[in-house]
Nucleic acid binder design. Structure first.
Lengths: 247, 247
DNA sequence: TAAAGATAAAATTTATAAATTTTGTGCCGA
DNA sequence: TCGGCACAAAATTTATAAATTTTATCTTTA
């Protein structure tokens, strides 16, 4: 089988601008740079240890991806979150990913099915949290989770569509990151993945689509509930994992 | 009725980077900057009469949109065209726009239907070409054409999806621009628009989807045929509408 | 002919200057 | 005394110019 389907082509970023772009993006998606925050050049220059130009280029790229909002003449901001956007992104993701999954399944090959099986297996045996007691993000699990979902739609035959799905996944990741600590263990995600895998291998397209959609909607529901309680008992957590300016 | 649905919220670009971004984009989409061309900073600085920073920022934004390819450490290039990409873009556009149209029709309001009727009417009475003899691009027609199609899917309720459709339209526009001169008058586009409009107003979703898809596929077919003959009788046209470096 | 070195060109980054927005202070009037 | 307006100072963003690094080309030499 073609194991390469599982590997991500990693290229060494040659320019500072690209490497900063990736770091900035990671910090935004993880909410270390919190939604709505102003991104002042002075702070960024200090924190990322780079000049203005590469930073500015990175910010401009992120603006096109709607992770950063650039207000003309008055700087850049991390895109704020909203229940509205959460809903819109989830809806859109369900639409396009069920579409992409349908096409993927229509193009199914043994290689693809086997790669999917392996991806699921790897995800299955990787712990969700680094610490069994309290939640501690396991980057490896996140990577494999993403890879599994990417593989599901990866055979649809449209790179633009795949790119769009990736962007939606990115933008939704931020919402997950905000609620993930609290929603830990309230849900058996791995069951859902297993059922999706089964439906795909059974060539039951309608069922696979249904389950995938349910999967995303359930996620959104939990995030929504979690966000509501968070905004009520707000601001008093003290657990500061965000980037603060040096003083 | 709500005429605002027809107007595009035009904001005055306050920064040079944004205005250059728009000019560059227009030049790429119209193929005045031809596919594959290297975008040397020195040339761009002269031609657009601006410094490096705003140009660099514009190029970085266009890179994210896949209209410009940035090769690390060795500069920027206008994204090359290929039959492969034409096919992929068309396929994707059919998928997502039929989806978006279906949703739009599900959310149909009288306002929306009336706006659509008006948009079609305006398109109808605007000449396709500025010159009835030989083809001469009429920017007004292009604008109205785009507005009509945007309106069709504009009620789907997903800004990300609309944005994605716009991007696909942009990337396909370039292919149309390459063949549009020659394909002039071989096709009755306005009939197709009229039929789509009728199906929408009749609330015949399936038919509207079918016609829209056909519309895009027919366009791609013509472009493909046109591109084939162009590459055969190539390079001898002499009609130079592209940007050349000063000497 | 092929490899190595030197030169030139081009891209990236840093540094400096200009323009714009935001903030703060004082004055006037209600 | 409080609120609004105008003006000035500070901060920040944007743009230009200079310096650095990397890549490409050309020549020379083995």
């Amino acid at each position: 089988m073609n194991v390469n389907l599982l590997k991500k082509g990693a290229e060494s970023p040659a320019t500072l601008a690209t490497s900063i772009y990736e770091r900035l993006k990671a910090d935004i998606l993880s909410t270390r740079l919190e939604p709505g925050r102003k991104l002042q050049l002075r702070f960024l220059i200090e924190h990322y240890d780079a000049g203005q130009t590469p930073l500015r280029e990175a910010l401009n790229r992120l603006t096109t991806e709607d992770l950063v909002i650039g207000k003309e003449q008055r700087g850049f901001f991390v895109k704020p979150i909203s229940l509205d956007e959460l809903h819109e992104l989830t809806k859109t993701r369900c639409w396009v990913e069920t579409l992409a999954l349908r096409e993927s399944m229509a193009n199914a090959t043994p290689d693809w099915e086997e790669a999917l099986l392996v991806a699921h297996h790897r995800l299955e045996r990787t712990p969700r949290s680094l610490n069994p007691e309290h939640f501690e993000d396991n980057p490896e699990w996140e990577r494999l989770h993403r890879a599994f979902h990417a593989l599901l739609i990866g055979g649809c035959g449209s790179r633009p569509l795949i790119g769009f799905c990736e962007q939606l996944a990115d933008r939704l990741y931020r919402y997950r990151a905000l609620s993930i600590r609290k929603a830990f263990r309230v849900r058996k995600v791995s069951d859902e993945h297993a059922r999706i895998l089964k439906a795909v291998l059974d060539r039951d397209t309608a069922e696979a689509e249904r389950l995938l959609q349910l999967h995303y909607e359930k996620t959104a529901d939990i995030i929504r509930a979690d966000l509501d309680t968070a905004t009520q008992g707000a601001a008093a957590t003290g657990s500061n994992t965000q980037l603060e300016p040096k003083h």
